[in-house]
Write a protein that binds this DNA or RNA. Structure first.
Length: 482
RNA sequence: CGCGGGGUAGAGCAGUUGGCAGCUCGCCAGGCCCAUAACCUGGAGGCCGUGAGUUCGAAUCUCACCCCCGCAACCA
């Protein structure tokens, strides 16, 4: 049985879930559900990244302990995914004790191996924040909170020998051993390797309490990314022992390793194609097969941002359109891998056009005609993969072309509407003749519903149940117009 | 000369290997009346960012330029 291990990033709990997180997670769910239909053994992981100075500060602002704060935000992510009927097999929080233990062990191993060494971190330090600032945090060279110029300071920290892996990783990426998709993103990364190259990175920080202590030097705390990346392993129950012989450990799900697909947006692509695979090489573990990068949503042509106040939350979508329609709208909003522009208006239009007038109306008119004529059709869901529709759909799904896969199904629905207009079964008295027209159309609807399962699981099942019954009834309105 | 993406009908986008420029929404006209004021047919509307080149032929390949957007490692 083929294995399919898919991950989303662990989402940083500095913010509540928004439509960007939703996009990644629903896409991962669509793939997971599709591969399950194809009888693969699937493991689907998502979760939250909860450590680091930012969270420490944010929690303090809200007068909460970091753990308490993280609990609240993590719960919001979990609730969002439940509302969207996301079928993840695990939800890994980086504050999970087993994760923390494993991170400690992993770091110890990298240290023993000589890949982590004591070095120096230099940066701009704001005394007010008690924190290092990046250039981008500053406004006119000043700390935005304290209105003072941060000082150049340095402190000791543990560094990871990322530079050591430059050539190996570049070769692996070029040869598609780690396949980066779409290809323009691969080009971007290859060019980064060739023109800028890898430098060692800091893996620890002093003065940060909220995180995983460095096992051999508790005065240091693991820097968040070293901690966060390992979730992809600990989410399978990895215990931090890197020896290859342990991979087949049956108590954990480590037999699923490595990830078949890791989905993410472009902001975290670079670290996922540098630090992350380097850590795996350092731990002696196999690398992810494919990294797929999807685009960003702009909202009404503008960048989505809190300051603009245009952020769309998953809960708002579900409230307005329902679970399955929300999943459909998000997945069909853009070509997967490209940026897209969304708005409530566009969602409304798409909902009415494709779901209410399209799928919903067709299901209603066909089921109504069948019921009125008292027909008993001999149709059943065809799940074998050799029908042309299945084949085309499967090929598109394999290439992450969700929007085209959906278009393919909607072409079929449109054809059904055309056929009905042309043959006018409502004007025919002879039930046999009516049956001859409606049977293939009903069969198509059933097949389309079968392929719609990954995108709209509940609606698909409803349609399948409705059209698989001996007596097909008109049933309820699937998508009321907005 | 940092890296990458994009500029195609009123709006949003597709255009795989170069071969009469497409899709959805909107608009106009007609049809149908089974269905969720839905569905079907037809139509208007594009110097495919600008300029040059390669070619029998370019939205597609090459070069230059203009404009927009994202990323530029301690932002997770």
């Amino acid at each position: 049985m083929p294995k399919f291990y898919i991950t989303t990033p662990v989402y940083y709990v500095n913010d509540v879930p928004h439509i960007g997180h939703t996009y990644t997670t629903v896409a991962a769910d669509v793939l997971a559900r599709w591969r399950r239909l194809m009888k693969d053994e699937v493991f689907f992981l998502t979760g939250t990244d909860e450590h680091g100075a930012k969270i420490e500060n944010k929690a303090a602002e809200m007068k909460l302990a970091p753990q308490q704060y993280s609990d609240e935000i993590a719960a919001k992510f979990q609730k969002a995914w439940q509302e969207l009927n996301v079928s993840n097999d695990n939800f890994l929080r980086t504050t999970n004790p087993a994760h923390i233990r494993a991170v400690g062990k992993a770091l110890q191993q990298m240290h023993d191996r000589g890949d982590i060494y004591l070095g120096k971190y230099q940066g701009l330090y704001c005394r007010g924040c008690e924190q290092y600032k990046s250039e981008r945090d500053l406004v006119d060279g000043l700390c935005p909170d304290h209105k003072v110029a941060p000082e150049k300071m340095s402190e000791e920290c543990y560094n990871f020998k990322l530079s050591k892996y430059q050539e190996r990783l570049l070769a692996l990426i070029k040869k598609d051993q780690i396949k980066i998709l779409p290809v323009e993103r691969k080009n971007e990364i290859v060019s980064f390797y060739e023109k800028e190259g890898l430098e060692d990175v800091s893996f620890s920080r002093k003065n940060i309490k909220w995180g995983v202590p460095i096992p051999w030097d508790k005065s240091h705390t693991t820097y968040v990314w070293a901690d966060a990346f390992l979730n992809y392993l600990t989410g399978l129950g990895w215990d931090g022992k890197a020896k290859k012989s342990k991979i087949e450990n049956l108590k954990s799900k480590m037999f699923m390793w490595p990830p078949t697909v890791q989905l993410m947006s472009k902001d975290i692509l670079r670290v996922h194609t540098t630090i992350w695979p380097a850590m795996l090489l350092a731990l002696g573990l196999p690398l992810p097969k494919t990294i797929f990068v999807h685009g960003y949503f702009k909202i009404n042509g503008q960048k989505m941002s809190k300051s603009l106040g245009n952020v769309i939350a998953p809960g708002d979508l579900v409230k307005k359109y329902g679970t399955d329609a929300s999943r459909f709208l998000v997945m069909s909003a853009a070509v997967f891998g490209h940026d897209g522009d969304i708005s409530w208006e566009k969602f409304d239009d798409k909902y009415n056009a494709d779901l209410a007038n399209g799928l919903g109306n067709l299901v209603a008119r066909v089921s109504n005609l069948i019921e009125k004529n008292n027909l008993e059709l001999k149709i059943k869901l065809e799940v074998n993969g050799h029908l042309p529709l299945h084949k085309k759909y499967a090929a598109l799904m394999a290439e992450f072309k969700f929007d085209e896969a959906l278009k393919l199904l909607w072409q079929r629905l449109r054809q059904a509407d055309e056929t009905l207009s042309e043959k006018k079964p409502w004007a025919i008295k002879d039930a046999k003749a009516v049956e001859k027209i409606l049977q293939p159309i009903a069969q198509d609807i059933l097949n389309v519903a079968g392929l719609l399962k990954p995108f709209m699981p509940a609606i698909a099942e409803k349609i399948i149940a409705q059209f698989s019954a001996g007596q097909i009834k008109k049933g309820e309105n699937l998508f009321p117009r907005i």
